[in-house]
Amino acid sequence: MANIEFRDYLRAIRDESHRFREVLTDCDPAARVPGCPAWDADDLLWHLAETQWFWARTVRERPDSPDDSDDGPERPEGHDALLEAFDDYSAQLVTELGKADPADTAWTWSAEQTVGFIHRRQAHEALVHRLDAEQAAGAVTPLDPRLAADGVEECLDVMFGAAPSWGTWHPLQHFLRVDCTDTGDSVWVQVGRFTGTNPADGTDVDEDDIRVVDAPRAEPDAVIEGPAGALDAWLWRRSDDAEIKVHGDRGIYGHFRKAVNHPID
Score class of each variant (00 low, 15 high):
A100W: 10
T105A: 14
A111K: 12
A136W: 07
P102N: 07
I118T: 10
E125K: 05
L131C: 13
D101H: 12
V94N: 02
R121M: 10
D88F: 01
Y89G: 00
D101K: 13
A136V: 07
E112Q: 15
Q92C: 04
E96M: 04
R120Q: 09
W109S: 13
Q113P: 03
H124V: 06
Q113V: 06
G98D: 07
S90M: 00
A81W: 05
D80Q: 14
D87A: 13
L97W: 03
S110A: 13
Y89A: 03
A81T: 04
W107V: 04
A126D: 04
G116V: 08
V140L: 15
A126F: 12
K99L: 14
D80V: 08
E134H: 13
W109D: 09
R130H: 14
Q92S: 10
Q135F: 11
D80A: 15
A139P: 12
A139G: 11
D104L: 06
G98E: 09
R120S: 04
G116W: 07
T108Q: 02
L83E: 01
W107L: 03
A81Q: 07
A91N: 05
G138L: 08
A103S: 14
T114D: 12
G138P: 15
L127T: 15
L93T: 05
D88T: 13
E112K: 14
F117H: 04
W107M: 04
H119S: 01
D88P: 00
A106M: 06
Q113C: 08
F86M: 06
T95I: 03
A81P: 02
H124N: 08
H129K: 10
D80F: 04
T114Y: 08
R130E: 15
L83Q: 01
T114Q: 09
H124D: 03
F86R: 03
T95V: 02
T114P: 09
L83K: 02
D80L: 12
A139E: 15
A103L: 14
R120Y: 03
A123H: 14
Q113D: 05
D104R: 08
R130I: 12
W107R: 03
H79P: 02
L131P: 05
T95S: 10
R120C: 01
E125H: 06
E96S: 07
V94G: 02
A103W: 11
A136H: 07
A100T: 10
R121W: 01
L83G: 00
Q92H: 08
W109N: 09
V128T: 09
R121Y: 04
H124Y: 14
L97H: 00
E84H: 04
F86T: 13
Q122A: 01
D101N: 15
L82Y: 00
G98T: 08
A136F: 06
E134M: 13
A123C: 08
P102K: 10
E96G: 00
A85S: 13
E125C: 06
